[in-house]
Amino acid sequence: MKKWMCMNCGWIYEQELGDPIGGIAPGTAWEDIPEDWKCPDCGSLKSEFEMEEV
C-alpha cells in the first residue's frame, strides 16, 4: 500500500486520522490539504511529501 510520507522525517499521513492539531480534520483527502500545511513532526512543506510503499 502506498501512502504520503514526509521525505525529511518519515512522518506518514493517515487520511482517517488527519492532523487535527495542524487543522486537518480526520478523513481529509491529501488533495484537499492546503499547500501551506506543514509536516507536524519536522515542519517540512506539503511539497516535501512523496507517495511511498509502506
Binding site: 510520507m5 521525505m7 525529511n8 522525517c9 518519515g10 506518514i12 511511498e52 509502506v54
Partner: peptide
C-alpha cells in the same frame, strides 16, 4: 538530511 533520512525511512 534528506539523503541520510532516506536510509532510515519507516518503510
Amino acid at each position: 538530511r534528506k539523503i541520510f533520512q532516506k536510509a532510515f525511512l519507516p518503510n
